[in-house]
Amino acid sequence: MAYKFNFSFLADRWPAFLEGAWLTVQLTVTSIALGFLVGTICAVLRVYGNGLTRRIVGAYVEIIRNTPLLVQMFIVYFGIASLGVKLSAEVSAVIALVINAGAYTTEIMRAGIESISKTQLEAADCLGLSRFDTIVHVVLLPAMERVYPALSSQFVLLMLASSVTSQISAEELTAVANVIQSDTYRSFEVYLIVAALYISLSFVYRFLFTLTGMILFVRRRKLGTAL
């Protein structure tokens, strides 16, 4: 028996696929931006904070990194709702994704910050830079440069992982695919389309990350030397 591929459902359904992909982009871009912010702050607290903040950040990172995103998503969406605050699925999804991305970013940025040589801090001291200026200009940017590949990989992973937000009713790419698949039973075709869309998205993300890297880390580009 031959399986006949039939993509004719695309004629009606392609806008739905695009809408789903668009929501995936919106959810993940927001979460990456906020998650990076949360993670960077936590990483600074983890390295330079006092005993208490270090311990709190440490616990946050461990709990999030060692449990499934799905469960985190459930707790945000249903947990908050049972307290009487009703958030839309999209808002809950972003909150859960930010909490998740924040934990991974913390861990990656921490490694970056710790890799900055002590002499750099001493030099900044000598130049009379404030604590804040030192952290931002002397520590964070070079630290970020060192861990940038790991960071961008993690964010692409987050984009792929965002498919679980379909479970709490966010109508992103995977959710749309499941509905179309169930209406038409064209599973193979739907999976191939979804794979192509996710791969395209990940290439776009990678391209943008590379571009951002080139803008952020001018020094490296100018000198053409590796750190």
């Binding site: 990989s153 792929l160 498919s163």
Partner: peptide, 11 residues
């Protein structure tokens, strides 16, 4: 590496 990293594991 680029292609596989961009493909959801489910797929």
């Amino acid at each position: 590496i680029q292609t596989v990293q961009g493909t959801p594991l489910l797929i």
